[in-house]
Amino acid sequence: MQSANVNRLTPYLFLAPAALIMAVALLYPIGYMIYASFLDWNPSQRIGEADFVGLRNYVNLLSDAAFLESFWVTIKFAAIVVSVEMFIGVGLALLLDRNIRGMSLLRTLFILPMMIAPIVVGLMWRYMYHPTVGIFNRTLKSLGFETVPWLSDGSWAFASVVIADVWQWTPFIFILSLAALQSLPQSAMEASRIDGATGWQQIIHIKLPLMMPVLIVTLLLRLIDAFKVLEVILVLTNGGPGLSTEILSLRISRTASEFRELGEAAAMSNFLLILLMLLTFGMFFYNKAVEVRAARLRAAAEED
């Protein structure tokens, strides 16, 4: 009897350390942040001394033009980089899904950018974008073209951070797409060739639809990441010029450290958190729906 009880408890005992760390390292700070978002709190105060202001921080956010601007920049950034990365990543995967000599080496080279720390990526690109000694402007100049204000003009700066992000994260989509492609049923491909599909028709009618589940998960993962991006932009432009590249996480960090408004920063963080949660739930429910559908289909097939 007693040993049965112990046996039943065993899994929870094993889970306990992880649960504890989760609670301390995740739930506590989040709870703290949520609480802080209802306070008018500056860093010189202890949290107990801050005034409770209810939803004022949130209401302020909605009328804060700078916040709305950076929210818009974030949306724009995420939408553009993820679209471009999906397009190039999937395209590359479709092109390179074949047996060529040295493919494994090529694959490793392709995913190299992904393995570099974002700060380093930022520094690297900052040197390359440098107005006078950077490789881009030097090359342009030597070819007789006008130099480009990579990081000093609003639109160019936005394009520059997009390029850097695309450079770093396209490989992620590339390898996942390639893996998806290579696990597609070969005989279906052959059947489509016999059915008369050209290369393009095969991609459009067979390959892409069959890759879709993987592509959707990849898209959501990248979207979540793109909303949280910080380091590369911090190093490249620090949000400037003006607010042209000030994405939300940068805005949050500046609100906390420069403007010393911890409550406001916490509210922004919550805002971003809710946005990401929505995306995550979207992914979760998508997966769930796929699983349920597969289970239902299996059941239906076995009945016959």
């Binding site: 049923p185 005989s187 279906a188 016999i194 069959l210 879709m212």
Partner: peptide, 14 residues
């Protein structure tokens, strides 16, 4: 001008 039936049927799952 040929049609083929595959061992694993090779239907398009989607």
């Amino acid at each position: 001008d040929l049609a083929m039936v595959f061992q694993d049927y090779a239907l398009y799952p989607h």
